[in-house]
Simulated assay, not measured.
Amino acid sequence: MIPISIEAYVKKHCEGNPGENPQKLKENLKQAVKDKKNGATCSNCGQEIWAIGSAVAYQGCFSCLTGEVDSSEDYEIKEVCWS
C-alpha cells in the first residue's frame, strides 16, 4: 500500500467526489485508524481492516471491500502502514 496522510487523502478523495463532506470523511478516517490500531478485523473474513475503505464503507479488509488481492497501488493512511 502507498502511505498517505489523512489530510492528503481527504483532499484527493474530495477532488474526485465533490459531494463528499470533507470534515465527516476526516472524522471517519480518524476513527478507522483508531479502530485499526486497536486490532479491528474485517467483519467478513477476520483479516486486518483497511482504514481508508472502512472509513467510507464498513469495517472490512482491502480484499473484501474491493474484490482485489493486490493492494500495492492503493492508498492507506500512513499511521497504520507497516513496513
Rank of each mutant, 00 (worst) to 15 (best):
residue 41 T to Q: 04
residue 27 E to G: 04
residue 28 N to R: 09
residue 47 Q to K: 13
residue 53 G to K: 09
residue 28 N to A: 13
residue 81 C to G: 08
residue 14 C to A: 09
residue 77 I to V: 11
residue 61 C to W: 07
residue 50 W to L: 01
residue 41 T to S: 05
residue 71 S to T: 01
residue 69 V to A: 06
residue 46 G to C: 00
residue 13 H to W: 15
residue 38 N to M: 11
residue 20 E to A: 14
residue 24 K to R: 13
residue 39 G to S: 06
residue 61 C to P: 13
residue 34 K to N: 15
residue 57 A to S: 15
residue 79 E to Y: 04
residue 16 G to L: 14
residue 71 S to V: 07
residue 19 G to M: 11
residue 5 S to C: 11
residue 55 A to Y: 04
residue 5 S to I: 03
residue 30 K to Y: 13
residue 27 E to H: 05
residue 45 C to I: 00
residue 45 C to D: 03
residue 23 Q to D: 12
residue 41 T to L: 11
residue 1 M to H: 11
residue 46 G to P: 00
residue 16 G to K: 12
residue 46 G to S: 01
residue 74 D to F: 13
residue 35 D to R: 14
residue 28 N to C: 04
residue 51 A to M: 06
residue 66 T to R: 02
residue 42 C to T: 01
residue 58 Y to C: 09
residue 1 M to E: 09
residue 76 E to M: 05
residue 44 N to E: 10
residue 60 G to H: 00
residue 4 I to R: 11
residue 63 S to C: 10
residue 42 C to N: 01
residue 42 C to D: 01
residue 51 A to H: 05
residue 41 T to W: 00
residue 64 C to H: 03
residue 1 M to A: 12
residue 72 S to G: 10
residue 56 V to F: 02
residue 50 W to V: 05
residue 53 G to E: 06
residue 29 L to V: 01
residue 48 E to Y: 09
residue 74 D to P: 00
residue 34 K to M: 13
residue 2 I to E: 08
residue 33 V to C: 02
residue 60 G to L: 06
residue 44 N to S: 14
residue 22 P to H: 03
residue 7 E to R: 13
residue 61 C to G: 03
residue 41 T to Y: 01
residue 65 L to G: 03
residue 12 K to R: 12
residue 58 Y to W: 13
residue 55 A to H: 05
residue 48 E to F: 03
residue 20 E to T: 15
residue 83 S to A: 15
residue 68 E to P: 10
residue 77 I to N: 09
residue 43 S to I: 14
residue 40 A to C: 00
residue 78 K to A: 13
residue 78 K to N: 11
residue 76 E to F: 07
residue 11 K to C: 06
residue 3 P to Y: 12
residue 28 N to S: 13
residue 49 I to P: 06
residue 22 P to Q: 07
residue 40 A to W: 08
residue 44 N to Q: 13
residue 42 C to E: 00
residue 16 G to D: 01
residue 6 I to M: 00
residue 17 N to V: 08
residue 46 G to H: 03
residue 10 V to P: 00
residue 18 P to N: 05
residue 9 Y to H: 14
residue 33 V to Y: 05
residue 2 I to R: 13
residue 55 A to P: 10
residue 22 P to C: 04
residue 70 D to K: 07
residue 72 S to W: 03
residue 70 D to R: 08
residue 30 K to E: 15
residue 15 E to T: 06
residue 81 C to H: 12
